[in-house]
Design a protein around this nucleic acid. Structure first.
Lengths: 234, 234
DNA sequence: TGCATAATTCTTGTCGACAAATTGAATGCA
DNA sequence: TGCATTCAATTTGTCGACAAGAATTATGCA
């Protein structure tokens, strides 16, 4: 049993404090355990983790750098609100990065890169079979990130990772109210994408990725609109 | 006269400490005042700015988040080395963002967005006339960033900004050894780009941006290769 | 002299404390 | 009662100090 929070006097290694807090807070924010817009209390976190405020603050600064929290000077720091107004911009960036990373993977991957990609696809497939929405989100992101890494462009990969994170939050938002399941079609599309990457067919890989991404965006948009209508009705 | 460094007991506002250090350090890194790979001494900085190590550390954490410094746990923090091996990936990302941001600007800009773009282009033009290489780098970046902002996609804009920053460092590297001047052709190309954006000609805007970017990349690559040869010769 | 080990010096990560800024409550006045 | 001002209570930003780890120097042994 690894206690996620040290009960009393769990010794931790020097230098691991901020990292620990950062990882957990990041997950809690992306998993919507912490509500967007809610305040983050440094002292409370310090007590909760049994450490001083210093490493907590470091974690918060890093999170602020990634836009996951916003810091109001001399005031509180908040969990970054989800920006529904710029959703369109987000989707546009997302689709582009799907396309670019997949295309580059087809062009620049090495044979051994395919292995982790296939592993993540297998995990995604089982998540779909199990209708485990949260696992789907995670494994889907891991799958596409593995493709991005096969493309061997660190700039694209890190940008894409950031977008996938933000997307994770949006998708959670949706899966909290609905228990829909991503269609199995995505599994097939993933398989096709893998095949074209392996065949080094850049053009087709890009086209597939684009369709795939746009498919997802359409799906999510539809659900968001539905959710909006629901909110109004209440 | 605004003293860049407080001589003795300059009172600064509460909460401005980290920001101050961050801004200056960032500039010094990007302007190559601080050599890539060199160590950053917290205590020295603390003395230099007349503050404690705490705000210094916050600035360093933020810089690390942007990849401008690398932190070796329990050891020193270094100014991030310039990665010549991944230069190709950098250029590829750069060209893509030139294309994307320009295209989106053509599609989504508002008339008032053109004003700042034209202003930066004027500044770039005078920098070229004056053969002021450093000013060229700065105004050129500002020009393209203004275009990105007209495209109204915060994700692309922030990513592009980061790339332009990194590019600033690479270009400085080059302009230190050579006193070449960017050709006037860039000024003309900028004008053309502005015209196509104003005309909302997405396709042509994208094509122009691509050519422009590839032109610059070719130029820089050529110079880097030359520099490399020189280094070997020495 | 060469190498492994021990001691020392430096740097970093963490802590507790304090003071400035802000928030919210309490008070005074119209 | 409504509004402005004052006061108390949080909360944040900064500081100085201390201890753990790493780098460096000194020491011991073959």
């Amino acid at each position: 049993m690894t206690p996620s929070e040290p009960g009393e006097t769990t010794e931790r290694k020097r230098g691991s404090g901020a990292r620990l807090v950062y990882d957990l807070l990041r997950d809690e924010i992306l998993d919507l355990v912490l509500a967007p817009g809610s305040a983050v209390d440094e002292v409370e976190l310090a007590e909760r983790f049994g450490m001083s405020r210093t490493p907590i603050r470091e974690a918060l600064v890093r999170l602020a750098g990634e836009g996951l929290v916003v810091t109001l000077p001399n005031r509180s720091t908040l969990v970054a609100p989800i920006d529904f107004l710029n959703m369109h911009a987000f989707f546009e960036a997302m689709v582009l990065m799907y396309r670019v990373t997949t295309q580059l993977a087809a062009r620049d991957h090495r044979p051994e890169d395919l292995e982790p990609i296939r592993a993540h696809q297998a995990a995604f497939s089982t998540a779909v079979e199990a209708q485990d929405a949260l696992a789907m989100i995670a494994t889907n992101a891991a799958f596409h990130l593995a493709i991005a890494e096969a493309g061997r462009n660190a700039y694209f990969t890190s940008f894409f990772k950031r977008l996938l994170d933000e997307g994770r939050r949006i998708l959670r938002l949706y899966y909290q109210s609905y228990s829909d399941r991503l269609p199995r079609r995505f599994v097939e599309e993933h398989d096709e994408i893998i095949a074209t990457i392996a065949a080094r067919d850049e053009v087709r890989a890009e086209a597939l990725a684009r369709e795939h991404a746009e498919q997802i965006v359409r799906q999510v948009t539809k659900l968001l609109v539905r959710a909006e209508r629901l909110e109004i009705r209440l």
